[in-house]
Amino acid sequence: MLDGANARAAPSRVWLSGHLGLVLLFLYGPILVLMALSFNQAGLPTAWTGFSVKWYGVLLENEAVLAAARNTLIVAVTSTLLATALGALLAIGVEYRRRGPALEAVLFAPMIIPDIVLAIALLSFFTLLEFTLGLHSIILSHVVFNIAFVCAVVRTRLRGFDWSVFEASVDLGANEATTFRRVILPAILPGVLAGAMLSFTLSVDEFIIAFFTAGPGQGSTTLPMQIYSMIRFGVTPEINAMATIVMAVSFALVLLSQRINKGSITG
């Protein structure tokens, strides 16, 4: 849209495109290197010795990794279901009626507060209440930031919503439950699905809050916690293989969420 104004500045245009290309290389280069090295035959971290999928086999036989993956699925699915229901209702309520600065602050806080602060706050809270820690406390904690993200995505969906349609439906004799199901839900459904997918991705990837609220013992180790402890031992092809799978799943879910609801990931 700025083409007209700057049409004669052709050389700067080439520079800008070149710069954008380099930025994309910077963003994707490291991830692609990681993915390529996961197919490296030798156990050496970086010298290429031939194509092989054997590290994926090694990974799938690692009991600790499989147990962590199972825990992560339990946490992500449960926290996503809870956060999607609560976040979507909240979005409708906030858009329809109340929009005070305090409410906006509470909805914005989980997105900007440093993870480590939320993590220690939740640990302090659970400890003070003498709450036993485990997968359930990770779930309770993940719902906190997931509510905020689901709510934000669904709200963008409702921004242009014509609330008089809603009033008309009620005036015409439909009760509020029917109106919700037949009028509001269809309008927000893409946003709800997209928000659910983003929240699932965020939960699968979240490390610090899970680390602090998992409690002692190995029983509730999640995949990022497992990845963290493996990374501390150094670069291995097995981590590269795991990283490749996790990144591929994230990318697929995020792209799907953007496809269902345009603007989900780009605001």
Binding site: P30, V204, F207, A243, M247, I265
Partner: peptide
Amino acid sequence: VMLPFWSNYLIRTYA
């Protein structure tokens, strides 16, 4: 540009 932002922070750092 936004795609990597939504993916695993630990892995992006490990890269």
